[in-house]
Computed example of a mutant assay.
Amino acid sequence: MSHHLSGPDLRSPQGDARLDMTDLFAFTVPGDRTVLILNAHPAVPKEGAALHPDAVYRINVDTDGDHQADVAFSFVFSPPRDGRQTVSVYRATGQQARDHEAAGEEIISDAPVSFGAEPQVVSAGPYLFSAALRSDPFFADLEGIANQFQWTGKDWGADKNVFSIALEMPSSELSPDPVIGVWGRVSLRTDGELKSVDRGAHPSLTAYFNPENSAKTAYNEGEPAQDRDTYLRQWTEVLQHTGGYEQAAAEETLNTVLPDILRFDRSRPAAYPNGRTPTDDITSARLTMVSGGKITSDHIAPHTDLSDRFPYLGTPHAEPASL
């Protein structure tokens, strides 16, 4: 289910929804600008919602194709108080971008987190930024998937909210080369140590390919640069079992998602797996992959409450449903 509930037992990492990265988007908008969005906290409750003050939320960008971060944006949230929360944004490059800590230049300080219907947008130098409660753009018939693909027509995400961290900038701010790779990560500081508890780029990978709880935990702690060596063999076996693939065909198919970095050639329109927009039907794409083409759609359409302006996701639902 996209990247929701990516911890053991199909729960949030460490059983804490605040630490659950749900989706990652990368697309361009007019004016030669790149948009990066990381969503977290599935099915945000109406009251008492906030992001974790001891976590580092992060968007990593590979600009040279070596599967390591060359630019990284880290988002650090204050402890919530009286229904309010702020967030600071850091931009790191080079070796600092490969550390999970919030390092580098602080490009936005103490921006307000928006909990109401209207997002507060911060303009800082070349950047637009928003951290806000928004309508979850994820769409899928999860009940049908869980019930042996007997489709119900029910969109799990139709009434859900999510916290959305959105950043827009001139495309040249990342790299003059139009081709970039993007992935997200959430790390938690515990007993003075920062540890990765969730990460990903391509949607719905760990749910389908890492059935064991220990595998999910190890995956969330891992680095994309090691993904192909670590997971190619076992994920090939998964595709052979679920989709009837021959080994060579399975390995070729997995080239799209291993390593787990979302490649985006910005000289071409964004459409998954070339980047990802909020209307891309990633559930059908993943069903097609794992079934070997036997199941090509869950028959759920994209949400229609999206905005054509920053931060692009829809107004949050007044009475969001729980998980």
Rank of each mutant, 00 (worst) to 15 (best):
L5V: 08
G7S: 03
L10Y: 14
R11E: 12
P13F: 04
D16S: 09
T22M: 02
D23N: 10
F25N: 01
T28W: 00
V29C: 05
D32L: 09
N39T: 14
N39H: 05
A40N: 03
V44M: 04
A49N: 10
H52T: 04
A55H: 11
N60C: 13
V61E: 03
T63I: 14
G65T: 11
H67I: 00
A72P: 01
A72W: 01
F73S: 01
P80K: 04
R84E: 14
T86Q: 13
S88G: 09
Q96V: 00
A97T: 03
H100Y: 02
E106R: 15
I108A: 06
S109H: 15
S123F: 12
A124L: 10
Y127G: 02
A131V: 08
L133D: 04
L133Q: 05
P137F: 03
A140L: 11
D141N: 10
Q148C: 02
T152A: 12
N161V: 09
A166N: 08
A166S: 15
A166E: 09
E168R: 00
M169C: 04
S171L: 02
S172V: 11
E173I: 00
P176V: 06
G181S: 01
V182T: 01
W183M: 04
R185H: 01
R189K: 13
D191E: 15
D191R: 12
K195W: 02
D198K: 03
D198P: 04
T206N: 06
F209V: 00
P211V: 10
E212A: 15
E212Y: 14
T217C: 04
Y219L: 09
G222K: 12
E223V: 14
P224Q: 08
A225S: 15
D227P: 11
D229S: 15
T230C: 14
R233W: 13
R233Y: 14
T236E: 06
V238I: 08
E246F: 05
E252H: 11
T253F: 02
I261F: 02
P269L: 04
T279I: 11
D280P: 00
I282Y: 00
I282K: 00
H299S: 11
A301K: 14
F310L: 13
A318E: 15
